[in-house]
Amino acid sequence: MEKTKLSIISQIKNHFNDAREKNYPYNRVDFSVRKEIVPQVLLYLKDVMGFKHLSHISCVDWLEDNEFELVFIVWSPADKIKVFVHTRLDREHPVMDNLDMIWRHAHTYEREMREMFGIQFTGLDAPEEFLLEDWQGPPPMRRDFDTETYAAETYWERPGREDAQDVRETIEKRTGEVLPDFAKNYKR
């Protein structure tokens, strides 16, 4: 049976009452759910609704909200529809359920997120070290990790780059373009 996006939304909302949905154009539907029911939602999507393929798991660091957001992207080859499942974790103690028994390749994403963001997956059976070898700093993809200072302290730098200019500032000076306020918070 062909499923439309609206039928997917109503089916998910029937099963998981507190799922909030967002209907995007084209073939994309987003759901936000509590982290406790993520495995159930994904299993339901996979086994009942035919979303057989996990395309990606990504992590977003919402430093201002003190939260991490995990996004699971699943794809239905029959209906050609993508579903994004969002969930938020506490940033101080980011713990999530391990999902590699649903899709085996979730294992790889989880190891990477554990290393890069410091998210713990309960029951993830893998060595701590993944891509970074003997890394001793904090998880490097967290937004409060100051890459520039770390690099300056760790690696010797050849003199001669001191006159490097701030790209944004230079553009502003040369073209008179006015930067939006939020852009001023970020260097380069």
């Binding site: 970074l132 700093g137 490097p140 990790f145 890459t147 520039e148 770390y150 690099a151 300056a152 760790t154 690696y155 010797w156 730098e157 050849r158 001669g160 780059r161």
Partner: peptide, 16 residues
Amino acid sequence: TINGGMYWDSYNTIKA
């Protein structure tokens, strides 16, 4: 390899 190139501020690459 000379001075870090465009990876000069990377947390994981050497610069010289």
